[in-house]
């Protein structure tokens, strides 16, 4: 199953560029980085001691920046757990509560705006049809007659194309199935964004801004810790929460209860019940990305 990972890829890739390009990529791309951060190794090759040091530095840096005591963990995947998600298309009313619960939990930039969840409004008559979908719908009340709603976020593929194309291996799939990004390692080339058929990866074109009173100081290194300009980010099923046993923020906030989450390896989980008993589909099945994010019809 496990492919050998070539961590020297980043070095090789960088060597292909001129020294000047390296400097400008790293420095303009990553905002204020310290020399230490620039020279940091890939997160997966760090020793426990090195990780602890990096995390301490980050906590200090964020605490100073946001004036709130920050915690950064690197809680690893638990054994016997593979996360799965299911969304009930017959319930979703398109209210977008999930979009903003996600922004808040995961410290997404407010301006420039980043949303991990796009809610697409589609015509019932046409069925699922991305070409004719609309994310800007804004009526007085939802749902609107004749429409249904398809929220799309990272599908946490078993066969992710985004991680394959990363020239520096800054993004990978964890043992519990979550696809993560090491922001300190990402060079901002955006190949992963081009490779993702779901539009689920987002680039920090500018320095992210988050009001200090809205920042969530409980963070994970591979998830909701503050990002910098020039890196790619994405949904991690709320890695900080789910590795702590909690439901993702979008699941908890959904007023119609359309969002379901659990352990695919646990035969008693909600998610397994859905896969066994409901009509289930995945988006763009032909691409063989094999999402762990399912859509179903609860009726």
């Amino acid at each position: 199953m496990k492919k050998p990972v070539n961590y020297s890829g980043r070095r090789k890739f960088l060597k292909n560029l001129s020294i000047f390009a390296v400097g400008s990529l790293a420095l303009s791309g990553c905002g204020p980085v310290t020399m230490k951060e620039f020279l940091q190794k890939n997160f997966r090759t760090l020793s426990k001691k090195e990780k602890d040091d990096i995390i301490k530095d980050l906590e200090k840096k964020y605490t100073a920046k946001y004036g709130k005591e920050f915690h950064v963990t690197d809680e690893p995947a638990a054994g016997g757990v593979e996360f799965g998600y299911a969304l009930d298309l017959s319930r979703c009313v398109g209210c977008r509560r999930c979009v903003y619960a996600c922004v808040k939990e995961n410290n997404q930039s407010r301006d420039p705006q980043i949303h991990y969840i796009q809610v697409l409004q589609m015509e019932k008559e046409k069925g699922i049809d991305f070409a004719h979908s609309d994310v800007h719908y804004n009526p007085e009340l939802v749902p609107e007659e004749g429409y249904f709603y398809v929220p799309v976020q990272c599908q946490q593929c078993r066969n992710p194309q985004c991680t394959e194309v990363c020239p520096v291996k800054a993004t990978w799939q964890e043992p519990d199935g979550i696809v993560v990004v090491d922001y300190n390692w990402c060079i901002g080339c955006r190949y992963c964004m081009a490779a993702c058929p779901y539009g689920a990866r987002h680039f920090n074109w500018g320095e992210p801004t988050i009001p200090a009173d809205e920042i969530n100081p409980e963070t994970h290194y591979l998830g909701n810790r503050p990002r910098m300009k020039g890196v790619v980010e994405k949904c991690t099923f709320c890695i900080k929460r789910v590795r702590n046993g909690k439901y993702p923020a979008c699941v908890e906030v959904c007023p119609v209860g359309a969002r379901k989450f659990g352990n695919l390896l646990d035969p008693d989980s909600e998610i397994r019940y859905i896969l066994a008993n409901k009509r289930v589909l995945v988006l763009k099945q032909e691409l063989n990305t094999q999402p762990r994010f399912y859509y179903f019809f609860g009726v």
Binding site: C95, Q118, V135, N138, V142, M193, C196, G199, H202, P255
Partner: peptide, 12 residues
């Protein structure tokens, strides 16, 4: 329900 605000633009 009243929907929350739509996104400014589609970033992806």
């Amino acid at each position: 329900l009243k929907p929350e605000a739509p996104p400014f633009r589609e970033d992806a």
